[in-house]
């Protein structure tokens, strides 16, 4: 049986729903990775640390770390929006760069829930929502509470 690959907007809707479902059960971050062939992997209990404008995601088994370099951080209301431009996978003693095309990182570092820009969707306090697409067509979506914020 052939399956039509999910288009970007459809993927985003699915990812947001899936994230919302899982994150309600997990206080920590949830990461969805959809490959260009449509296969999806989900990583729950991801530790999320924000250091300056760099985002660090550590897998639940502590064997993998994603380092996301962000720039162009500015505010839309109380939501901070950054643009990711580098992603590195640190795993098995190696660091591998993952080339990305574009993405967005939304951060709510305030103490109250905030609406995402042009949306009725709310981001809980100290929560992050990040989405990006790689050069190879992989979509990554991350949502969860920020476990640590360092200057």
């Amino acid at each position: 049986m052939r399956f039509r690959p999910i288009r970007p907007r459809a993927y985003a809707l699915f990812a947001a729903f899936a994230i919302a479902t899982i994150s309600a059960a997990s206080a920590k971050g949830v990461t969805l990775v959809q490959q260009a062939d449509g296969s999806v992997r989900t990583y729950v209990d991801v530790n999320i640390r924000l250091s300056g404008q760099t985002l660090w995601l550590r897998s639940a088994d502590r064997k993998g770390v994603l380092k996301i370099g962000n720039g162009a951080c500015s505010f839309i209301g109380a939501i901070q929006r950054c643009l990711p431009y580098t992603v590195a996978l640190i795993q098995d003693g190696k660091t591998r760069q993952i080339a990305i095309l574009h993405g967005t990182v939304f951060l709510n570092l305030s103490k109250t829930a905030q609406h995402l820009p042009l949306s009725s969707e709310e981001l809980a306090p100290r929560t992050i929502l990040a989405l990006w697409r790689t050069v190879r067509g992989t979509y990554v979506t991350i949502k969860g509470s920020i476990d640590e914020v360092a200057p």
Binding site: R7, P8, R9, A12, A16, A20, G103, L118, S119, E121
Partner: peptide, 17 residues
Amino acid sequence: SSHVSSGAAGHVSGGGG
């Protein structure tokens, strides 16, 4: 659709599937 708004889609572009 009942759970998500366009804001959560970030900058993922393209038509609906």
